[in-house]
Design a binder for these strands. Structure first.
Lengths: 259, 259
DNA sequence: TATAAAGCCTAACGTAACTGTAGGTTCAAG
DNA sequence: CTTGAACCTACAGTTACGTTAGGCTTTATA
């Protein structure tokens, strides 16, 4: 004589931490369908139901959808398939983890920048964040023009270097937005660009500059549209055009790359 | 005379990687509402719209909801508030990251177990996973009965130890399910329990055992219901009762703890 | 024993951030 | 002039529930 004990939905909710509504829902979609008391219509959960629910919770934790869980639970074979699914789930999780990690460091970077600069143009901030977000694709893009080790050299930076670069970049954009429109041969403009180049390049050693020079061949063929998608500039069209001219002028003047 | 250039929705989608449908959606909810060509009704995006979209993408990446983004973009103050929000987002991300990490190691553990044992009772597998999932709460529970350092000792295990424990545990459950119902004084049963205890306890050193002994005072007052919620057993009621009796018998027989 | 409170029921709507589809209009090229 | 690509609106669907609303049942208390 087995006296089967049943539990009410509230008890199950307490026991497992799954809400009543969720249990209703699982019943609705046929995932966990307990017996019902004939007269009252109240659900009554058996020990088996509880075990099944534990499995459901576990599979959910591992990342399966309720639809998938339904399948898994109904299959007897169970095994072959499961390992594959587990590995897939793992890959998905690892991707997500990576995404979260970049998001976290983007946040850190943003916070630091705000602290350092106080009120900051959101456009600039965004362009930095966006460029982190697409770093992988930026690398790919760069690697289609330069050797991998050159690209690595560009990206291998310490925390401190990066922060320094951020600051330089932000100051630079600020000045650009102030000076836009003024004659490209004015001392301020020349000074601005000179300062910026020096600060930026100072982070790379001579070795790098040489390597870069040997590979800077057919720059005319570069696909700039692609790049724009990956790292939007914090400048308006107008600012950008002005900046280009200023750069050109500066390079001509200082016969950069000749000697 | 400024010649304003506009872009079609398709061009924007190409430029930014955001789908046309999503751009429609952003328009619908009033997040990004480009001008429209009077006659055709086609959306036309300005440079400003593109910048705004870049910001939207960035804020999304950092974890804000579209609703929040709408607010952020409409505010001029922008600054004070933003840093706080960023820190909050960071915390959320860090929580999520932790969750993912446990999920990943749960998967690893499950895969190893399946490889090791081939066909394995899913109930057992689930109970292991579930217990990882609730490890934090389990610790809390334990710490309400033992000192923190004792609890730490229980949980500090190397990869290898953990795997060994998993295997021991799984073999144990298998045997229990085979032997359930047989007399608790039979040699097989005694042997089973002896083996299990030895394997389990062998992982802890004497120091630990002593500490544990001094603290094992009022075990009667333990709140088992709480525990059940955190670490469901892989046994049915029947199996569990039988196992309890077998344990009691074994402990009496072997005058465990008296010495 | 009456009644209140707690617990349970179904049914329907709401959520976030989209994706998909149907049926129709506009634009660009040959 | 036609054809195909690009665009439009409008509606439905997705996941895994949360949140009511309105009405039974069961349990505890006066």
């Amino acid at each position: 004589m087995e006296k089967k004990k049943f539990y009410s939905i509230g008890e199950i909710a307490d026991k497992t931490g799954v809400s009543i509504r969720t249990l209703h829902y699982y019943d609705d979609i046929g995932l966990l369908t307990p017996a019902k008391d004939e007269s009252s219509g109240h659900r009554k959960y058996s020990e088996d139901d509880i075990m099944k629910l534990q499995k459901i919770i576990s599979y959910k934790f591992i990342g399966f959808s309720l639809e998938q869980i339904k399948e898994i639970l109904s299959e007897q074979k169970f095994n072959m398939n499961l390992v594959d699914s587990l590995m897939m789930q793992k890959k998905l999780f690892e991707k997500e983890k990576k995404r979260i990690e970049t998001s976290i460091s983007a946040i850190d970077r943003a916070i630091k920048i705000i602290h350092e600069h106080g009120e900051i143009d959101s456009v600039v901030l965004m362009s930095l964040i966006r460029s982190m977000q697409t770093e992988d694709k930026q690398r790919e893009w760069l690697e289609s023009y330069f050797d991998k080790d050159v690209v690595d050299m560009i990206y291998v930076q310490t925390e401190g270097e990066m922060q320094k670069l951020d600051n330089v970049f932000i100051d630079f954009t600020k000045r650009v937005k102030e000076l836009v429109g003024s004659p490209v041969d004015s001392p301020e403009v020349i000074n601005l660009i000179e300062e910026y180049m020096k600060s930026t390049l100072s982070l790379f050693d001579d070795n790098f500059m040489e390597t870069l020079a040997t590979q800077t061949g057919n720059l005319d063929e570069i696909n700039y549209d692609e790049l724009e998608k990956l790292a939007p500039t914090p400048f308006s069209k107008e600012e950008e055009e002005w900046l280009n001219k200023a750069m050109e002028y500066y390079i001509e003047q200082s016969n950069f790359g000749e000697n």
